[in-house]
């Protein structure tokens, strides 16, 4: 089986290339995850854009998103199953890959984890069997670049992650801080006052509450609340206020803070 690490993303929300971020042991994530995959497959490669260089063998990613990378890999290895892994999974460890491989069902088109976030299949910690390539090819030809749509059409085996945080990813500096707090065991419980306005008030069904959380930043707290209330707003469309002042998403929450998530405003 081929193991491929996707490092072709543009990391625009992080502002730095996610593959080269360092979370542990002075090792970049691309080095760490590549080495991890190598322990499971001799045929481990990267998949990234032509203009990138990590000093490791790679298949060229056309740069049209992760599905185009998967497609390029399947073109390069048409008869192989491919374990596809994203490079922005800093809490992913050997045990998670080993479990995925143990659970692999070769009679299906793919084996993947279920997202704890929305109960849909994860697409980038997934074994794609060779039989999945027809559907991938069709989607690319139809200019449909969403890997989740493709997985929804495939016959796949879904498994639960071993830890709630196994597949936590970090797309923004605030999410990176949340990940680091998990890694360094620096998460502490605190009591936060929340007030809700406009649509968030309607969706939460309450105007205010007191909440105990171990989230480090408002970004982590909003993520937690999204799971509780199914908020429809993406974090990036909101602003956040702490103690009656606008704040950044990376701001560290303190005991007793009052936090307000501000949906798109519409005065006038």
């Amino acid at each position: 089986m081929i193991a491929a690490l996707l490092t072709g993303g543009k990391s625009s929300r992080m502002g730095k290339e996610k593959a080269t971020l360092i979370y542990r042991n002075e090792t970049t994530e691309v080095q760490r995850l590549f080495a991890l995959l190598q322990t499971h497959s001799e045929d481990t490669i990267l998949c990234h854009r032509e203009d990138q260089d990590h000093g490791l063998p790679f298949v060229t990613d056309p740069g049209e998103g992760p599905l185009s990378a998967i497609h390029a890999l399947q073109q390069a290895y048409p008869h192989d199953a491919i374990l596809v892994l994203a490079c922005d999974l800093p809490l992913l460890e050997d045990i998670d890959i080993r479990y995925l491989l143990e659970q692999r069902d070769r009679s299906k088109d793919a084996t993947s984890y279920i997202s704890r976030h929305d109960q849909r299949p994860e697409t980038l910690c997934t074994i794609y069997e060779a039989s999945s390539s027809t559907m991938v090819e069709q989607a690319i030809k139809a200019d449909s670049y969403c890997p989740r749509d493709v997985l929804a059409k495939l016959n796949i085996k879904l498994i639960e992650t071993l830890k709630p945080t196994s597949l936590m990813n970090a797309n923004t500096p605030a999410e990176r801080l949340e990940v680091l707090s998990h890694l360094n065991n620096t998460r502490v419980q605190k009591t936060i006052q929340l007030r809700y306005f406009a649509q968030l008030q309607e969706q939460a069904g309450i105007a205010a509450e007191t909440l105990t959380t171990s989230a480090l930043t408002p970004a982590g707290l909003y993520e937690e609340l999204c799971q509780k209330y199914n908020f429809t707003h993406k974090q990036r469309s909101l602003m956040v206020a702490i103690n009656e002042n606008f704040s950044t998403w990376e701001h560290e929450l303190a005991e007793g803070d009052e936090v307000v998530f501000i949906p798109p405003v519409a005065g006038g």
């Binding site: 306005f197 406009a198 206020a241 307000v260 405003v265 519409a266 005065g267 006038g268």
Partner: peptide, 10 residues
């Protein structure tokens, strides 16, 4: 005012 002030309309 339209851009920045936390006022909403339903």
């Amino acid at each position: 005012i339209k851009h920045r002030v936390p006022i909403w309309k339903k």
